[in-house]
């Protein structure tokens, strides 16, 4: 498992990941987020009922969030060193600033999605104008 990156390094690497995907015109980018509860493994062994009880009686302790990114390449690509895996850990207090940047990087990177369709509205306006000029 690779080492966790800092926020800046993570964003640089993620932007690079999106750029390579854009250039090759295909591929998948997988982003994952979860609570980073590495040393809480003891909690997981609780029974269903106990789990519910601890949840309702004790408030959830603060924990950082683990963010992972990958280009989801197969095993062959992994052997060729084409597999990219990134990860970073965000402290609860840094979440807002992280997600603001995250949104920007994602918006810029996911350019393969359909932009807002304005053709229908334009056509409607045209039709309306025509009606006006006729009347």
């Amino acid at each position: 498992m690779s080492k966790h990156l800092s926020q800046d390094e993570f964003f640089t690497a993620l932007t690079a990941l999106f750029t390579t995907q854009k250039q090759s015109q295909k591929g998948t980018i997988l982003l994952t987020q979860k609570r980073y509860s590495y040393d809480e493994s003891a909690k997981e062994t609780l029974s269903e009922q106990e789990h519910e009880e601890t949840l309702t009686t004790t408030p959830l302790p603060q924990a950082p969030i683990l963010i992972r990114a990958s280009n989801s390449k197969s095993k062959e690509a992994r052997n060729e060193g084409k597999k990219v895996k990134l990860s970073t850990i965000i402290q609860p207090d840094d979440l807002d600033s992280f997600y603001a940047r995250y949104a920007d990087v994602c918006k810029a990177g996911m350019s393969g999605l359909k932009p807002r369709d304005r053709t229908k509205r334009k056509a409607k306006e045209k039709a309306r104008r025509k009606m006006k000029t006729q009347a």
Partner: peptide
């Protein structure tokens, strides 16, 4: 809260 994870999957296939 401890086990749930959220994945975002962005696929791009050639035009």
């Amino acid at each position: 809260p401890t086990t749930t994870r959220i994945s975002t999957n962005y696929h791009l296939s050639p035009a």
